[in-house]
Simulated scan of single mutants.
Amino acid sequence: MEHLNADTGPRELKYAVLHLQAAAEVLLKSRLLREHWSLVFSDPARATSEKFSASDFNSCGTDAAVERLKNICGLDFSKKDVAALKDLGKDRNALQHYGLTHSAEAVESRAGAVLDFLLRFLDAELLPLLDAQERDSIKEDMSRVRSGLNTIEAFVVERMNRLRGNELKGTTDSLLPCSVCGQWALAVIQNGAHCHFCGVTESAEALALVFQEFEPGHPANECPRCCNPTLACFAFMDGAGEELYYCFTCQARYKLEELANCGGCGCLWPYEGADDGTAQMLCGDCRRRIEDEELASRW
Results as ranks from 00 to 15, higher is better:
residue 10 P to D: 14
residue 17 V to T: 05
residue 19 H to P: 00
residue 20 L to K: 02
residue 20 L to S: 01
residue 22 A to G: 01
residue 25 E to S: 05
residue 30 S to C: 05
residue 30 S to V: 01
residue 33 L to M: 09
residue 33 L to K: 07
residue 34 R to M: 10
residue 41 F to H: 00
residue 41 F to K: 00
residue 45 A to Y: 00
residue 52 F to P: 01
residue 54 A to N: 13
residue 55 S to P: 04
residue 58 N to V: 11
residue 64 A to Q: 12
residue 64 A to P: 03
residue 66 V to P: 02
residue 71 N to C: 04
residue 73 C to Q: 04
residue 77 F to V: 02
residue 81 D to A: 14
residue 84 A to N: 07
residue 86 K to Q: 14
residue 91 D to M: 13
residue 93 N to A: 08
residue 93 N to L: 07
residue 96 Q to L: 11
residue 98 Y to V: 00
residue 100 L to C: 05
residue 102 H to T: 09
residue 105 E to L: 06
residue 107 V to Q: 04
residue 107 V to H: 04
residue 109 S to P: 00
residue 111 A to L: 08
residue 114 V to Q: 09
residue 118 L to G: 08
residue 118 L to E: 13
residue 118 L to Q: 14
residue 120 R to Y: 03
residue 122 L to I: 07
residue 123 D to P: 03
residue 125 E to P: 12
residue 132 A to C: 13
residue 133 Q to L: 06
residue 136 D to Y: 01
residue 140 E to H: 14
residue 140 E to L: 14
residue 154 A to P: 02
residue 155 F to H: 14
residue 156 V to E: 15
residue 170 G to E: 03
residue 177 P to F: 10
residue 177 P to N: 12
residue 179 S to T: 07
residue 180 V to L: 10
residue 180 V to I: 12
residue 185 A to Y: 01
residue 189 I to Q: 04
residue 194 H to K: 15
residue 196 H to F: 06
residue 200 V to N: 04
residue 201 T to E: 03
residue 206 A to T: 08
residue 207 L to P: 07
residue 212 Q to S: 09
residue 215 E to Y: 08
residue 216 P to I: 01
residue 217 G to V: 09
residue 219 P to Y: 06
residue 221 N to P: 11
residue 224 P to K: 15
residue 225 R to N: 11
residue 229 P to L: 11
residue 229 P to F: 10
residue 230 T to V: 12
residue 231 L to Q: 08
residue 233 C to G: 09
residue 235 A to K: 01
residue 241 G to D: 06
residue 251 Q to P: 00
residue 254 Y to M: 07
residue 255 K to S: 01
residue 269 W to R: 12
residue 275 D to H: 15
residue 280 Q to R: 11
residue 283 C to H: 13
residue 285 D to W: 12
residue 286 C to P: 13
residue 286 C to A: 02
residue 287 R to L: 06
residue 289 R to A: 09
